[in-house]
């Protein structure tokens, strides 16, 4: 009895229901599933990039809980704009761009709020988590706080996350040469502040 080489309808349905292990999938594969409607697959992207995104965000906003909010907001933006991801760069680079921009905006918002703080709120500020050291080295944190958030971002990506100049350029929306120049200047500023304070 000849057998039909085509898979039966039941087999096809079963094959469609099989979930490949996400941990070994590429970002692009997971993105394709999310775009196709599998919202839950985004959780794997989130888990994969959360740690580095949080590190970059914390290096910019210099506050843990604010950084967590920044990462959540950035991930939400990434999820909602996933169909616009053009794959010219890696998903990580694209995500860092969103994280950096969101963190810089949050920093400026916070700075603006602090300028508008009243004397009555000063006592509240004394118990605010902002007063608690956010980084392991208080000298580094003090120097970082005196820098512009864009400079903090480039130092953090280069020295904390070991991103290449090409990846930093993608995240900062500039050319690699511009990223190199900005890294040089940011490093010099940091050194001046750091050694000036330490002296």
């Amino acid at each position: 009895m000849p057998t039909d080489p085509r898979p039966s309808e039941e087999t096809v349905t079963l094959a469609n229901q099989i979930q490949l292990p996400m941990d070994h999938d590429t970002d692009e594969h997971i993105i394709a599933r999310v775009v196709a409607g599998d919202r839950a697959a985004f959780r794997h992207l989130f888990d994969r990039h959360y740690g580095r995104s949080l590190s970059v965000a914390q290096g910019i906003v210099l506050h843990r809980s604010e950084a967590e909010d920044v990462v959540q907001e950035a991930m939400t933006k990434a999820f909602k704009n996933l169909t616009k991801f053009d794959r010219r760069a890696s998903f990580g680079t694209w995500l860092y761009r969103i994280v950096v921009n969101t963190a810089i905006q949050a920093t400026r918002r916070t700075r603006h709020d602090r300028q508008a703080v009243t004397l009555e709120a000063v006592s509240d500020r004394l118990t605010d988590p902002q007063g608690i050291p956010q980084l392991a080295d208080p000298e580094i944190e003090r120097a970082m706080r005196q820098m512009e958030p864009e400079d903090r971002a480039i130092l953090v990506m280069f020295y904390w996350e070991d991103l290449s100049l090409n990846e930093i350029a993608g995240a900062m929306e500039c050319t690699p040469n511009a990223a190199k120049t900005r890294l040089f200047r940011a490093r010099e500023r940091f050194r001046q502040i750091f050694e000036g304070g330490a002296a």
Binding site: Y50, G59, L135, D137
Partner: peptide, 26 residues
């Protein structure tokens, strides 16, 4: 001098999250 500064800077990197929260968007 540079090595010392960069060593401190790198060491100041915050530790990673112990628990990864659920994405709010989901």
């Amino acid at each position: 001098s540079r090595a010392s500064m960069l060593g401190k800077f790198t060491a100041a990197k915050p530790v990673g999250p112990a628990i990864i929260p659920a994405p709010h968007v989901l």
